[in-house]
Amino acid sequence: MSDGYRGGAVLAEVVRSGFAESVHRGSVVVLDAGGAPVAVRGDGRGPVFPRSSNKPLQSVGMLRAGLRLDDDADLALTCASHWGEDVHVTRVERLLERHGFAGADLHCPPDLPAGPAVRDEALRAGQAPTRTRMNCSGKHTGMLLTCRAAGWPTDGYWEPAHPLQRTLRATAEELTGEPVAAVGVDGCGAPVFAFSLTGMAQAFLRLVHAAPGSFERQVADAMRAHPRLIAGTGALDTVIMTDVPGLLAKGGAEGFAAVAVPGAGAVAMKIDDGNMRAIPVVLRAALGALGVAWTPPPSPVLGGGHIVGELSSTW
């Protein structure tokens, strides 16, 4: 997953009884509103796979290729790593149906909901995994609809050589200001592009600072208008975009996160061990460096059902 990324500093630690028990290492880049570095911890230039944090950039590419959606909530869904709640699945299925597709046309694998509560409910009800409940089904739906709009074949739309993926790659390169360092296969089966943390922070700044009505701004505005569709009830992206007006956020698997606040700046981070629990506390500190106040949900460490410590940022 690293492709030249050198890893980095201690960003968070678990404290029990006043002693640091374990640590999370990683890297974080903080840019001001003009794109200049405010702070860098660890490796800000080595390429990493942002995983689903690439989705907003890919959605800009879909619009450039001709995708047009009547409802900005559907555009938000193309950027989502949704938790498989009914509000997500129903919208995906209706969007597919309106354009003559079905869940079976999606290349993403069948899955159970990603949200803990809705996943437990599905298991209790004996529900089988489906493609539309997979957390990337909104992105794959957008890819299918883009192919239809552009007159491209839908067969193999996930292949790196397909004209759709070439367009999405070129768009992501333009927004990050970097060439793709590596192309991998994401968990959903679509290509994932590697960039540096600095490049990803620059891309998110471009989204929130883009001119009103531009494709970049359409994506940013749709995501911020529909935070629940981006993730789900209680999920970090949903919570922080609800808590901080104007903030754009998109996390990625294996400990990646990118956020931007218009007029303030942007943050991109990677936790080396892929554990997502360090992200909120580090993000709070990084946003604080930009003068943006946000208090994440509590992060207690439990032992025997009791709180015995907490996770805190070292920066």
Rank of each mutant, 00 (worst) to 15 (best):
T176W: 15
R133T: 00
V192C: 15
R148G: 10
G187P: 06
V118G: 04
C136V: 00
P116T: 12
R166H: 04
R119P: 05
C147T: 06
V118N: 10
A117I: 13
M134K: 07
E173W: 08
A181Y: 08
R131I: 03
A170F: 03
H140Q: 05
G142I: 13
A150S: 09
G115L: 11
P160R: 14
L168T: 09
A190C: 04
P153M: 08
L164Q: 05
H107N: 11
L123F: 05
W152D: 00
G151K: 02
L145V: 05
A170L: 08
G138T: 01
A161D: 14
C147F: 09
T146N: 09
F195Y: 15
F195G: 10
W158D: 06
G115S: 08
L175N: 00
D155L: 15
H140G: 00
N135V: 06
E178M: 07
V180T: 10
A150C: 09
W152N: 10
V180W: 06
A161W: 12
K139G: 00
D186K: 14
C136L: 03
F193W: 07
W152S: 05
Q127I: 08
L123S: 06
G156C: 12
A181R: 04
A194G: 12
W158T: 08
P110V: 11
P160F: 10
A194V: 13
T130H: 10
A194E: 11
P153K: 06
N135A: 03
K139C: 02
H140I: 02
P113E: 12
L175P: 00
T167D: 07
R119N: 14
R148Q: 13
G184W: 10
H162F: 07
R148D: 08
C108V: 01
T146C: 04
L144M: 11
K139E: 01
G151H: 03
D155P: 05
T146H: 05
F193E: 03
H107M: 14
L144V: 02
S137I: 00
A114Y: 06
A182G: 14
W152V: 01
Q127W: 10
V180F: 06
D155W: 12
D111C: 04
V185T: 06
R169M: 05
L145C: 02
T171N: 04
P179Y: 10
A161H: 15
T141I: 09
E159K: 15
P129K: 02
A149L: 05
A170M: 03
G142S: 03
C147M: 08
